[in-house]
Amino acid sequence: MMDKRTPLEKVLHALNYAVVTAVSLMCLYPMLHVLFASLSDPMRLLAHRGLLLWPQGFSLKGYQAVLSNPNILSGYMNTIIYLAGGLVVSMVLTPLGAYALACKDYPFRNVLVFLFVFTMYFSGGLIPNFLVIKNLGLYDSRWAIILPTAVSTYNLIVMRTAFSSVPGALQESACLDGANDFVILYRIYIPCIRATMAVVCLFYAVSQWNSWFNSMIYLQSSSKWPLQLWLREILINSASGGTSDDADALYLQELIRYAVIIVATVPILVVYPYAQKYFMKGVMLGSVKG
């Protein structure tokens, strides 16, 4: 990249760094607050107000309470199962649908887009959806967590936009070729939008990781509950300790609240850089075009 830097550009460059750094620091603070709070001695934590710049005292009781809970391991295992299953289903269905919708000029294309988008606004409600799951025989089955969220209309649209933006692509012929070229096109277009694929994959993964509501209503066996649901249970059960008169229980609840966030988020932080390298420019070697 040519590097002609006028003084103005140098100032702008420095300003750029400054602004982005400032924003990042403001975004970093709450996570640090949570981390420090989770490690603090609860009594000193509760006596503290304002910014938390380092742990107040030291205590691992929060983590002990959360991690020694026998259900955490089962929760993690289940979440990984749902994650893997969900990603496989979603990343097969979504590109198929997105590519097809990116093609134009075939009957009912706009109708289908509208019908898909419609589902982002209107839903039958809790009870009718429950009845559908039940009548399909999926109640208390892991498929009830994987299938209903298989395709997210939002992600579908994002991927479709990316397909449409591939330069010089998707002429009429591309959308008309027979079964043979189907696979070849697939092998070309998907790598073209590698960054968007990574992002959509990330969105599905995070959504599945954070979800607990469907598990709460569809899974009767607690052996199938995912991590987030158990974390909520731990927090709420310790809250009833908070209404008790035992000061220790009240303090513990505070610690648990923070420890729970760290336990739930650390895996994401660990895995994230692997997804990030696909959409942060700088590692983009090789051409974009096929």
Partner: peptide, 11 residues
């Protein structure tokens, strides 16, 4: 910086 910037979303 980018990794840090999305952290608040998870709190």
């Amino acid at each position: 910086l980018q990794t840090v910037s999305y952290m608040p979303h998870f709190i």
